[in-house]
Amino acid sequence: MLAKRIIPCLDIKDGRTVKGVNFEGLRDAGDPVELARRYAKEGADELVFLDITATKEKRKTLVKLVEKIALELDIPFTVGGGIGSVEEIADLLHAGADKVSLNSAIVRNPDLINEASRQFGSQCIVAAVDAKSQGDQWEVFISGGSKNTGKNALKWIKEVEERGAGEILLTSMDRDGTKSGFDLELLSAVNDITSIPVIASGGAGTSQHCIDAIKKAKADAVLAASIFHFQEIEIHDLKEKLKNADIPVRETI
């Protein structure tokens, strides 16, 4: 049976992880490679690296980091953050990333999805959609959530699927950082209209939140950052709880 995936997300700046991490036993909590290895060992099914570097040197540093991660890590990983062209996608995939996550760039230039999926295959093109409730609909925000595009999120998701995206990384901006649970209404609405996998993001605070996202809103995977970084939830314990709720998970220990 296909397992539901647990995906820790690491924010990267200048080649280092940001946001505090307090894992015991890590020599250096800022080293993404070391943290990635730790998560993989604890049973993470995939990892997402989100680069928030804003400098010109960004691309070179990121490609080097991806090469290092790919050499160490034996589970799939996605790289995202400011990726804007087919050339950049090619560089990251050749460096060993399994998927790239595209966000603002595909809103500005939707054809990028078609070009990238034609060239590299849909399986490695993740469309990241940051959605926020505005009146009676969810709208798409870009540029790290700072700019409202006015686009209807459900229509946009349908469009990215038709253009060739292989997976949706859906972040609820209303819930992001609140630890009050995923936006089940948004997640269900998206799952009702799309036939590609959906990763739920934004709002994870407890194991029950993850169970609800999967059981009530049919999420294919759940992504979280801080609850894993601060060890509020151990990946292994979370998987135990999912299993007890009759959710198929990949057991590693």
Binding site: L2, A3, D45, Q123, E167, S195, I196, P197, D220
Partner: peptide, 13 residues
């Protein structure tokens, strides 16, 4: 794909 999500993506036995 009328039955389940396609691609088949993730861990299976």
């Amino acid at each position: 794909s009328s039955q389940h999500k396609v691609p088949h993506m993730g861990w299976n036995t």
